[in-house]
Every structure is written in structure tokens, then in C-alpha cells.
């Protein structure tokens, strides 16, 4: 985490005085972007840097669904299953993904490429169903589009590209 401190310092400038505690969430997000998850050493370093009680960091990490303390697959497929998506076939989408990847929601493929997660509303109800791959929304998904998406991602990994 240490190498991110300059970034945090810049972030801090935008915040009013005495907002160190507020930086917990942005910093954790940044750390997770960097490492893929939040490790024990990151917590220790962050607590040391922000001078917040460690329990606050632990609470935040356990509370927010987007933060995690364990590594997951390279591509995090988050399929929305809330009302609007369900009404446009999200259940089929998830079932299809699950079949195609061979994992149940919440699991990671054995090769560590994909992690499939069911999530509640992603705020893309008009273009449902939606699947979020890492940060990017893939909207109006259908079985064919899904196949193509997963195949492309898998091919990219095989090619060694990003």
C-alpha cells in the first residue's frame, strides 16, 4: 500500500480539514483496485496512515459488498438479479453464465479467470439485464451476447493481453 500514499495525499487535499476518517473508503477502494483485494498488511498500513481505529476499517470492509479481503478471479462478473433485470430475463442470464463457467454464483472458476456473483440492483434497469465485468456495465444481455463476451474475455486472457 505504501506506494499509494502519494495518491492518498493528493486525495486528501480535496477534502476539508479533519476528514482523515472519510478517506477510509476511497483508500480502500484504491487499494483494492491496486491489489484486487484488501490484504492484512494494507489494513495495518492504512490504520497507521490515517490514524483511525482499526475496527472502523474492519467494519467498513465487512459491510460494503464491493470490498473484499480475499482475492477473486481476474474478471468479476456481477450479474444483477433485482426486479427490473429479473423481469427481463436475468435469472436465465445467471443460469446460463453459471452453466457456461461451470461455477455457482459466488464461486471462482478453477483457473481463476472468472468470478460469478449475483448482485442487487446496479442501477441499469432500463437496459436490463445487465452484467458488470469488473467496472464496466454490459447491458441488454442475451445468451448470445453473453457467450461472445465470455469467449472474448477468455481469449484475451489466453493471448496474455489485458
Amino acid at each position: 500500500m505504501k506506494h499509494l500514499i502519494p495518491e492518498f495525499e493528493k486525495m486528501k487535499e480535496r477534502y476539508p480539514e479533519g476528514f482523515e476518517s472519510s478517506l477510509v473508503l476511497p483508500c480502500l477502494r484504491r487499494i483494492q483496485e491496486d491489489r484486487g483485494f484488501v490484504a492484512e498488511e494494507d489494513i495495518v498500513a492504512l490504520v497507521d496512515y490515517l490514524k483511525v481505529p482499526r475496527i472502523q476499517v474492519e467494519e467498513v470492509l465487512s459491510y460494503y459488498t464491493m470490498l473484499r479481503r480475499k482475492p477473486i478471479g481476474r474478471f468479476h462478473l456481477q450479474a444483477c438479479r433485482n426486479i427490473a433485470c429479473s423481469m427481463r430475463g436475468a435469472e436465465g442470464v445467471i443460469a446460463h453464465l453459471s452453466r457456461k463457467l461451470g461455477v455457482k454464483p459466488g464461486q471462482t472458476t478453477p483457473d481463476g479467470t472468472f468470478t460469478l456473483t449475483e448482485v442487487e440492483c446496479l442501477g441499469s434497469c432500463g437496459t436490463a439485464p445487465v452484467v458488470m465485468v469488473n467496472e464496466a456495465y454490459h447491458e441488454n444481455m442475451s445468451t448470445e451476447k453473453l457467450d461472445r463476451l465470455v469467449d472474448e474475455l477468455a481469449a484475451g486472457v489466453r493471448a496474455g493481453g489485458k
Binding site: R14, L25, V60, Y64, M66, L67
Partner: peptide
Amino acid sequence: LDIVVYRGAGSY
């Protein structure tokens, strides 16, 4: 004015 965009992390 300073505006900070604060990103949540998944909570209704």
C-alpha cells in the same frame, strides 16, 4: 467551492 466525488462501495 470544492467538490469531492465520494464513491460508495455497494450499499443501498
